[in-house]
Simulated scan of single mutants.
Amino acid sequence: MTDTKQKTDTYLVTGGRRKEWSHGVVNPPVYRASTCLFETYAELRERCADPSAKKLFYGRKGTPTQWSLEEAITELEGGTGTMLYPSGIAAITGAILACVKAGDHILITDSAYEPTRTFANGLLRQMGIETTYYDPMVGAGIEELFRENTSLVVTEAPGSLTFEVQDLPAIIAAAKKRDLYVITDNTWATPLLLNPLTMGADISVHACTKYIGGHSDIMLGSATANKRTFKALQRTAYQLGQTCSPDDAFLASRGLRTLGVRLKAHEENALKVAAWLRERPEVATVLHPAFEECPGHEVWARDFAGSSGLFSIVLKGGDYADTAALVDDMKLFKMGFSWGGYESLILPSDPNGSRSATSWDAPGPLVRLHIGLEDTDDLIADLEAGLERYAAHIGAKD
C-alpha cells in the first residue's frame, strides 16, 4: 500500500507520474508504438537480455503510457508488480493460468463472475484442470474441500450479483497451510476499500473497465501479484501475448486520478438509494454489504474501508418476464452490462443459471443496480415510478 507519509488521495494524483515518463507535462503521453528503435547493437543486446525491464523493447511489452498505470496500481494494491490486459476477464484468466498446470484441481466461489465459470468449464477443463465450486460463505471450512492436487482458490468479495462477502482472511489462512495460491477479484472494492494482497492473497484482479476507468469508455483489466507470484504472472501474460492499447491505459490513468472522489460519491448515493429501497413494499431484500441482511455483512464491516455503488434488490412476487414493467420505461436507469461508470444502470439477473454448489431461492426476481453520480432524488423518483409499474403489473396478473 502507499507510504503512510503520502495518503491514498494524494497518491491517486501523483502515482506513476515519473519525470522520465512524463517529460515535463502533467500526464505521461500516449505512446502508440509497435516498433521501438535501438541506437546501437549493444543497446539491442541489453534490451533482449531483459525485455521485461521498463525500457522500450517492443510495443507489446509496453511504453511509459502503460508503465505509469501499472506502477500506480501496484503501489495502491501493495504488490510487487502489475500486468495489464485487454479486459477484466482476460486479467482473471491470465491470473488463473499463471497458477495452474494440467492435472490440477482448483476451487472457485459459486458467486463468481459468470465468465470466470465459463472459462473454468471450458478451456480449463480441456487442459485437464478440474474445478470445484464452493459456497462463498464457507470461510475456514474451505479446507475440507482441498485435495492432494488442489493448487488454487479463486475468490470474489463480494459476489457481483448476490453480494455475499467472503471471509478472505479465513480462506487465505487455510490456503496458506497447504501453500495454495489465492486470487481475489477485487473490482467491487477497488484498492481503496480492500487490499487482498496485504491479507495474504497472491493476485488481486480488477476489471479496470469499471471504477478505475470510471467513464464507460474503455475495456481494460489488471492483475497485481505478490513477490512469489509476479514472475509467473508476467511470464504467462507475455507467452499469451496479452497487452492493452496505450489509449485505454491513458484513459484508465486519467480515471484513476479521480477514483477517490468518485468512489465516495458512489458510496454516498448508493447508501441513500438502498436505504430508501429497503422501505419499499415491492422490495423483499436489499443485498448491499453495508446492510445487516446481506450475507457476510459482519465480514464487510471488519475488513472493508467502505462500499461502492453496486448492489442488488430482490423483488416481492412475479418472475423475470414481469421485470419488463419495471425496467422498460426507466428514465435514468438504463439497462446494460458492466458498471462503475458515472451513470446509473439497472439489470434483471437470474443467479440460478450460474450456481452449482449453492441454490438461489428468492421470493421474486433479482435486479442489480449501479448507482451513478446523478442526483439521488432524481434516481429515487425514477425507481419509485418503476416499482409502482411493477406492482401494478403483478396486481393485474393476479
Rank of each mutant, 00 (worst) to 15 (best):
P363N: 08
K177T: 10
C208P: 01
A33L: 14
S160N: 09
K210Q: 13
T10K: 14
K7M: 06
G341C: 13
I172T: 08
S245A: 12
L69W: 00
P246I: 05
P363C: 10
T93W: 04
Y134A: 07
Q126P: 00
M330Y: 00
N121P: 03
L193T: 06
S245C: 07
F38G: 03
N149H: 12
G94M: 05
Y134R: 02
A140H: 00
K334G: 01
S68A: 15
T209E: 07
T80F: 13
E298W: 03
L332T: 00
G306M: 05
V182N: 04
T184H: 13
V299A: 03
K272V: 12
W188L: 15
K210W: 07
R254S: 15
A392K: 13
T243W: 06
S34V: 15
A33N: 08
M335H: 02
A223Y: 02
C99G: 09
E39N: 11
V286Y: 07
R302N: 03
I313L: 13
R18M: 08
T358R: 07
N195T: 12
V182I: 07
A189M: 12
E343F: 13
L326M: 06
A305P: 01
P86K: 01
E43L: 10
K54W: 09
A90D: 12
F163M: 15
G128M: 05
Y181G: 04
Y11M: 04
E143M: 01
D319M: 05
H206F: 12
A140S: 10
P295L: 09
D361Q: 14
M1D: 04
L124M: 05
A396F: 08
G255Y: 03
E268T: 14
F38P: 04
D350A: 09
R235T: 15
A49W: 08
L347C: 09
P158N: 09
T285V: 13
L387M: 09
V286K: 02
A95Q: 03
A157G: 08
A391Q: 14
G364S: 10
R262K: 13
G372D: 07
I371H: 01
M335V: 04
P281V: 11
L310F: 12
H23K: 10
W300G: 01
L345G: 02
L240G: 05
H215E: 12
P51Q: 11
I218C: 03
D329R: 03
R257E: 15
E144K: 10
A49Q: 12
Y320F: 15
E75N: 10
A357I: 11
L84P: 02
G386D: 03
A321K: 06
E144Q: 10
T224F: 00
Y134V: 14
W300Y: 13
S87V: 05
I96C: 02
N195R: 07
A325R: 01
R45E: 15
H297I: 08
S245D: 03
P86A: 04
H215Y: 14
E298H: 14
L347Y: 08
E268N: 11
G78T: 04
E144Y: 03
W276D: 11
A201S: 14
Q66R: 06
L347S: 12
E75Q: 11
